[in-house]
Structure formats: structure tokens, C-alpha cells
């Protein structure tokens, strides 16, 4: 899955599949978040709006998939 690859590109040593909360588990910090958003926008050719920038949209794989789905990415 492309999304997982993008996450693993950021920190290959972390397990993004099982974590339910990337922020609480320390898998993503504010530096990483900037990189993640840039990577998602580039890979899926979309633009993430400021109002979508909240923990609920980014906290785990399901949340991110939901976000992508709303942008028409399946």
C-alpha cells in the first residue's frame, strides 16, 4: 500500500501498521507531519486544506485512509 510506504519512508524503523495513535506513540512529530503532508500532496496530487489539519485526520492508518478517500483517492 502506497500510504504505508510513504510513512515508512519517513521513519523506516517504526511500525505504523499497529499504532492507533501516531502522536501519542511518538511515531510522528511536528517535523514529520510537514514531510508527510508534502508527500501525500505530491503522491496523490491533492491539496490538504488548513481546516483538515487536526489530529483526528492523521492519528493512524485508518484516519489517513479516510482523509485520502475524501479527496477521491481509493
Amino acid at each position: 500500500m502506497k500510504l504505508l510506504e510513504i510513512l515508512q519512508e519517513i521513519h523506516p524503523q517504526f511500525d505504523y501498521e499497529t499504532s492507533q495513535d501516531f502522536f501519542a506513540d511518538g511515531l510522528i512529530d511536528s517535523f514529520d507531519l510537514t514531510r508527510l503532508i508534502a508527500a501525500l500532496e505530491e503522491e496523490f496530487d491533492l491539496s490538504i486544506d488548513g481546516t483538515e489539519l487536526n489530529a483526528e485526520n492523521f492519528k493512524n492508518l485508518d484516519a489517513l485512509q479516510g482523509l485520502l478517500l475524501r479527496h477521491g483517492v481509493k
Binding site: F23, D29, S30, L33, G50, T51, L53, N54, A55
Partner: peptide, 10 residues
């Protein structure tokens, strides 16, 4: 708190 710096609008 550090977590506040994750999402800048917040």
C-alpha cells in the same frame, strides 16, 4: 505543550 505545535491552526 509540544503537542500544540503539531497543528498550527489549533
Amino acid at each position: 505543550p509540544k503537542s500544540l505545535f503539531l497543528f498550527k491552526r489549533k
